[in-house]
C-alpha cells in the first residue's frame, strides 16, 4: 500500500475516508470534555417559538387530550375558579404520578392550555438530551432545581410569568411514595409573590391507582381534577406562611374529593381538615388510612356466576 509522504490524500476511496474519519489526536494532547448544556442550564427558548407552540398545540389537542380522556376518564371540577383570573397564574397541585402533568395540562381550558409551562425537575427530566427535547416540546417544560434554590431557574420562571405564561408547579417536589402528601416547598409562593400573580390550588385524585411511583403496571382508572379558589398573598404575609396556606387549600380539596363539598368546607372552617400529609403513625397505619383512590395496585375483584362482586360491608 502506498503511503503519501506529504500527507496529502489521494483522490478516490482513500480521499473519501480522509473526509469521513476524524483525524487522530496526537498522544500528548488532552481532549477537552464535551459539554452539553443539560439540567438547569438547558435552554428551552426554542420550545416557546411560535411554530413549536403550534405543533405542541396540535399534539396536545389531537393526541394527548383524547387519549387521556379515554384512559383516565377525568372529571374536572371547579373550572369556575379559573374564570375570574385575568392574566397568568401559578397552578399548585399535589403529585402522585407521571400522568399528573399531562393530565392537568391537557384538561386546562383552551385559553390557558396553550399559554402554560410546566416546572419540571431538572435532574430527572433534563438529564439527557432526548429527554430535554421531549419534555420541553411535549409539555412546554422548563427545568427547575428541586434540591436547592437556583437563581437561574427561578429567574427564568419569573420572566416567563411576567411574559404572560401560566405555570404548573408541584410544590411537593416529587411524586408521593406512600400515597400521602409531602411538605410544600416555597417555589410556588415565591414566584406568586415576586410576580404578583394568584395561586390556584389543584387536587388530582386517582392517578396513583393508574400508575404509581415505582409501579410498572398501568391500569385504566378514573380520575378527578379539582381547582380551588385563587389565593393571593396577603399584605405582609411571608412566603412561608403563604405556602402553608396553599398546602391547606390543597388538603381541603383532597378532603372534598373524598367526602363532599359542604362537609369539607365545614371542616376547613373548623380547622379539622384531615392532614394532607397523613397521620403521624407507622408505615402500615399510614397505608391503612389511605383512601381507596390513593392506593396503588388496586384490584377490582371480579367474580363470575352467582356470586355478587365483593364489596366491603359498611
Amino acid at each position: 500500500m502506498t503511503r503519501h509522504v506529504g500527507g496529502a490524500p489521494a483522490a478516490g476511496r482513500e480521499g473519501l475516508r480522509f473526509v469521513a474519519e476524524n483525524p487522530t489526536r496526537p498522544g500528548g494532547v488532552v481532549a477537552p470534555l464535551a459539554r452539553h448544556k443539560l439540567g438547569v442550564d438547558y435552554d428551552t427558548a426554542w420550545a416557546r417559538r411560535y411554530p413549536v407552540r403550534l405543533a405542541r398545540a396540535v399534539v396536545l389537542d389531537d393526541f394527548t387530550r383524547p387519549v387521556l380522556r379515554v384512559a383516565l376518564s377525568p372529571r374536572v371540577i371547579g373550572l369556575e375558579h379559573l374564570a375570574p383570573v385575568q392574566g397568568p397564574m401559578v397552578l399548585a397541585a399535589n403529585h402522585a404520578s407521571h400522568l399528573d402533568t399531562a393530565l392537568l395540562l391537557s384538561m386546562l381550558p383552551p385559553r390557558l392550555r396553550h399559554r402554560t409551562i410546566v416546572a419540571a425537575a431538572a435532574d430527572y427530566f433534563f438529564d439527557r438530551q432526548w429527554k430535554a427535547v421531549v419534555w420541553s416540546f411535549g409539555l412546554g417544560a422548563i427545568p427547575m432545581e428541586r434540591s436547592k434554590v437556583n437563581r437561574r431557574s427561578a429567574d427564568l420562571a419569573a420572566r416567563l410569568i411576567n411574559d404572560g405564561w401560566s405555570l404548573i408547579i408541584f410544590p411537593e417536589g416529587g411524586r408521593t411514595t406512600d400515597g400521602w402528601g409531602r411538605e410544600f416547598k416555597g417555589g410556588a409562593s415565591y414566584l406568586a409573590k415576586r410576580c404578583c400573580v394568584p395561586v390556584i390550588p389543584v387536587h388530582i385524585r386517582g392517578t396513583r391507582a393508574v400508575l404509581a411511583k415505582s409501579s410498572s403496571r398501568f391500569r385504566l382508572g378514573s380520575t378527578e381534577i379539582r381547582f380551588g379558589d385563587a389565593l393571593t398573598p396577603d399584605q405582609g404575609e411571608d412566603a412561608r406562611k403563604f405556602v402553608a396556606r396553599i398546602e391547606l387549600a390543597v388538603a381541603a380539596l383532597a378532603d372534598e374529593a373524598e367526602s363532599d363539598w359542604w362537609s369539607a368546607r365545614r371542616r376547613a372552617a373548623a380547622g379539622t381538615t384531615p392532614p394532607f400529609r397523613g397521620p403521624e403513625a407507622s408505615a402500615w397505619r399510614r397505608e391503612w388510612a389511605l383512601p381507596d383512590s390513593a392506593r396503588k395496585d388496586q384490584h377490582v375483584v371480579r367474580e363470575r356466576g352467582k356470586h355478587k362482586p365483593w364489596t366491603r360491608d359498611d
Binding site: 402500615w284 397505608e287 392506593r295 396503588k296
Partner: peptide
C-alpha cells in the same frame, strides 16, 4: 388481599 399486602410487604412487615 391487596390492601393488607400493600400496607405491609413494601415496609418489610
Amino acid at each position: 388481599g391487596d390492601r393488607v399486602f400493600e400496607a405491609f410487604a413494601p415496609h418489610g412487615l
